[in-house]
Amino acid sequence: MGEDNAIRIDGLTVRYRGRPAVDGLSFDVPTGSVFGLLGENGAGKSTTIKALLGLVAPNAGRLEVLGLDPSQKGEEVRRKVGYVPETPTLYEWMTPTEIGWFASGFRPDAPGGPEGTQGRYADLIKGFDLPTDRKIKALSKGMRAKVGLALALSPDPSLLILDEPTSGLDLLVRREFLESMVDLAGSGRTVLLSSHQVAEVERIASHVALVHKGKLILAEPLDELKARTFRVSLTFDGPTRPASLPLGPDWHLIDADDASRQSCWLIHAADRESLKALRDLPGVTGLEVETPGLEEIYIAYMRRRVPATGTPSLAAVLA
């Protein structure tokens, strides 16, 4: 793996009881990026993260995390990575202060050693407004999530892996936490964020990957994805649709929503200018081209509706 990638995933396949939870997944996470991993429940996001941490053995494929193979050096990977699961497992009989002191001993290689880790942890729980002397079992779900975040951030890791990290956090703390991820990336650290909160990912991510039923749909810089994805609204003079479309090698239809005289399509194209050819199609009386947000793009890829037409040639062109 090159120095430009904190994570490399090449053909990852993980099966449970013979069924693939992750099926041939491949993408790279650039160093210094905030990388959003998006997909529905059961898409394979958590399984992918577990494989990256050496907690699940792949059936096929190759992984590298900070230059290490987690299937061979999982313990070393876990020492180098800050990880926050959706539901952190914490020693409930400890207080937040006690668990911070306890955890710091497992990261002697962190900047400043255990003392440095404890100092950063103390600052984090103070910033999260956590009670330092209350048992963890008496904390709310949101407070427990904050303890997990503080434990992951306190060793000052170069790579942070987060699985639904803002679950249970109030709006203000969630916003502050997400903004801190951008600051981490700005200092050269890398954040892999798995979330179903698409709007949150769009606000902070530099790169995104969409997965569906264990397979990769796309992985690219967010700016490029949004710059090449368009919502095209077409108005027709009647219910008949053209038999074919002027699609080129850089075009593909993502989703279609058709009515009797109007169509709204999401199209991935080379640029906005190339879409003007649609105005010259027979029967077209109006054309509007807009840039959708990430949530609309995500939903479109999940739906994958085909145009409402009985014309085989059109269906073949758009396949």
Results as ranks from 00 to 15, higher is better:
Ser313Tyr: 01
Thr309Phe: 03
Glu200Tyr: 08
Leu281Tyr: 11
Gly44Asp: 03
Leu38Thr: 06
Ile9Val: 07
Arg261Ser: 09
Pro20Arg: 15
Gly74Ile: 09
Ser104Glu: 10
Leu52Trp: 10
Thr229Phe: 09
Pro292Leu: 12
Gly286Tyr: 10
Thr190Trp: 11
Ala259Pro: 00
Met302Cys: 04
Ala219Gln: 02
Ala103Met: 12
Arg17Thr: 03
Thr95Cys: 01
Pro20Asn: 14
Tyr16Gly: 01
Pro58Tyr: 14
Thr13Gly: 12
Leu178Thr: 06
Gly2Thr: 14
Ala122Pro: 00
Met181Phe: 11
Ala269Met: 11
Pro58Gly: 10
Met94Thr: 01
Leu52Thr: 08
His212Ile: 08
Gly283His: 03
Lys126Tyr: 01
Arg175Trp: 07
Gly293Lys: 13
Gly148Glu: 04
Ala138Arg: 14
Leu38Val: 06
Gly82Arg: 07
Asp4Tyr: 02
Gly127Glu: 08
Leu253Arg: 09
Glu75Gly: 02
Val317Gly: 01
Thr166His: 03
Ala227Thr: 04
Leu139Lys: 14
Arg134Gly: 02
Asp69Tyr: 08
Pro157Val: 06
Asp255His: 14
Leu63Cys: 03
Leu53Gln: 01
Gly54Thr: 06
Ala219Glu: 02
Arg231Met: 14
Thr48Val: 01
Leu247Tyr: 02
Lys80Val: 00
Ser194Thr: 03
Asn5Thr: 04
Val289Leu: 14
Leu234Trp: 08
Val211Gln: 00
Thr13Glu: 13
Thr132Val: 11
Asp129Pro: 00
Phe236Lys: 08
Gly67His: 07
Leu151Asn: 02
Ser26Lys: 09
Lys276Leu: 13
Thr47Cys: 04
Ser158Tyr: 04
Val284Thr: 08
Phe230Asp: 03
Val65Leu: 07
Glu92His: 11
Leu245Ala: 04
Ile99Gln: 04
Val232Met: 06
Gly24Tyr: 11
Cys264Pro: 00
Leu216Ile: 06
Ala259Tyr: 04
Thr229Met: 11
Gly44Ile: 09
Gly36His: 05
Leu38Phe: 10
Asp163Val: 09
Arg62Val: 13
Leu149Glu: 01
Arg303Phe: 04
Leu169Thr: 10
Ile9Asn: 02
Leu210Trp: 01
Arg261Phe: 07
Gly39Glu: 11
Leu12Met: 05
Arg15Asn: 12
Asp250Ala: 12
Leu151Val: 04
Ala6Asp: 05
Thr291Pro: 00
Ile125Trp: 03
Arg120Ile: 12
Asp170Met: 05
Gly42His: 11
Glu296Pro: 03
Asp183Trp: 13
Pro96Thr: 01
Met302Pro: 01
Leu234Gln: 11
Gly238His: 02
Ser260Tyr: 11
Lys146Arg: 15
Val201Thr: 12
Leu172Ile: 14
Ser313Asn: 00
Pro165Val: 10
Ala243Ile: 07
Thr31Ala: 08
Ser195Asp: 01
Ala316Ser: 11
Pro221Lys: 15
Arg304Met: 05
Pro155Leu: 06
Gly113Leu: 13
Thr291Lys: 13
Pro131Ile: 04
Ser244Phe: 12
Ala6Gln: 06
Leu149Cys: 05
His196Leu: 06
Ile99Glu: 00
Glu273Thr: 07
Thr235Gln: 14
Tyr83Val: 13
Pro165Asn: 09
Ser158Arg: 14
Ser167Gln: 03
Val289Cys: 14
Lys215His: 10
